[in-house]
Nucleic acid binder design. Sequence first.
RNA 1: GUCGCCAUCGUCUAGUCUGGCCUAGGACACUAGGUUUUCAUCCUAGAAACACGGGUUCGAAUCCCGUUGGCGAUACCA
Length: 454
Amino acid sequence: MVKTRIAPAPTGALHIGSARTALFNYLFAKKNSGSFVLRIEDTDKERSKPEFERDIIENLEWLGLKWDEFYKQSKRREIYKKYLKQILDEGKAFWCDCAPEKGKPFFCQKHKKTMNNKQQTKNNCIIRFNMPKNKEIIFKDIIRNNVKFNTNDIGDFSIAKNLDSPLYNFAVVVDDYEMKITHIIRGEDGISNTPKQILLYDALSFEKPEFAHIPLILDTDKSKLSKRKNAVAIGDYKEQGYLREALINFLALLGWHPKDEKEIFSLEDLIKEFSLERVKKGGAIFNLQKLNDINRQYISKMRIKDLCELLKSQITINKQIGKNINFQNIVEIERGRMNKLSDFWELSDYYFKDKLEYEKELLIWGKMSKNDLKKSLENSYNILNGISEKDWNLENIKNILMDKTGKINNRGELLWPLRVSLSGKKFSASPFEISWALGKEMTLKRINEAIDKV
RNA sequence: GUCGCCAUCGUCUAGUCUGGCCUAGGACACUAGGUUUUCAUCCUAGAAACACGGGUUCGAAUCCCGUUGGCGAUACCA
């Protein structure tokens, strides 16, 4: 059975890149009716923090990438210890206290001679893998085909600080074997660890999984995506009001592409369509404009009730909603203008104000005189006042207003001042929509206030 | 430096394995026009790419070699 895993280190919040790797692992597992494992790689006692672990778990859950099994490396020390002892006993690893030169593969001359010494002799000793010299390591990568390394370029790499503190490469190999992981799908930056891990599989007589290295997500300067230029934490995007569906959809399209030209995919669709064969090799720059576009599409297609709930869940940090305001109507009107949920509060602030503040010049359309303007506003007032509360709906308001303006050469002379009187803004939704959402009373009040200004 | 990976519009990408249907397709962004009282939406159109050089072949974006460029790894981090 296919089994994949995502193995984040809790040394930072859930990163866009990890989320995308998690997604690909999840999709591949589910596509093949397999299972997906979440393993927290907290072997680094100093840098691992519980709050990051919480963030990773919460945001993976939020994205909807449900795992079937959960592990923490810090709870598995006895398992690593057993295997560490084993390869030490077999002479495939050794204790060493050398300080190797940087940037060069290191082969220990000194300690291999004393390899029969199975005990840690000094405190600052670590355990190194006894690397064979000049051996070709070739592995097949599902995405990249054959990748070749020579052990001379690697050296006696470290596998543990001591029996209780395994290092990354060792812990990963033991876990992937013990957890019966069949496919290791990870970022391209893991390629250079692969030969080390393959040697470890062989040294421990473990059966090897398949490897697939997916392209990296790049910053606008083409380096690995980092905190400096963009928000990289999934939590940040969630807070700004990106929808999980949009984020998933966008992430899937970074490095993967379906057979046809379809672009909008639910998680279920993705499971059906996904294949590692269609993952491309080159890195992909994170393009916020594309994310915005996809997010906008999801927002405009969402069920209005759900969208209102989501928006209201953010309201504590924003404003109070007056009881006379029809919140759902406002959402209906403004949803097409939002890229992300947080945009809503800027777009819609004028609905919630008791009194609008704006320059009276803004009310003027074209070359209207003061008198024209006053007449126009009074005209609007009378027209709208003639609509009963019962008939106060968007269609009616629009039809009646348009019917009246049809007789005027320049519609703007009626509609522009009306719109500004209702919104106080240069750009906003139409006067029909605003009137509808505001209700008759508030609409008439705002027109009156505009007339008073003139 | 060394080792490895990669290379199609500004960006995400289709096409590459299985050479001809590619005068290189789509999307985002951009520009122009249309719809609209404004903004947004929507519609139409446009500009925009096979990194370079050699081969192989009747024919190369596609196969091979080289060059250049980019990225990654070179930890007692993961």
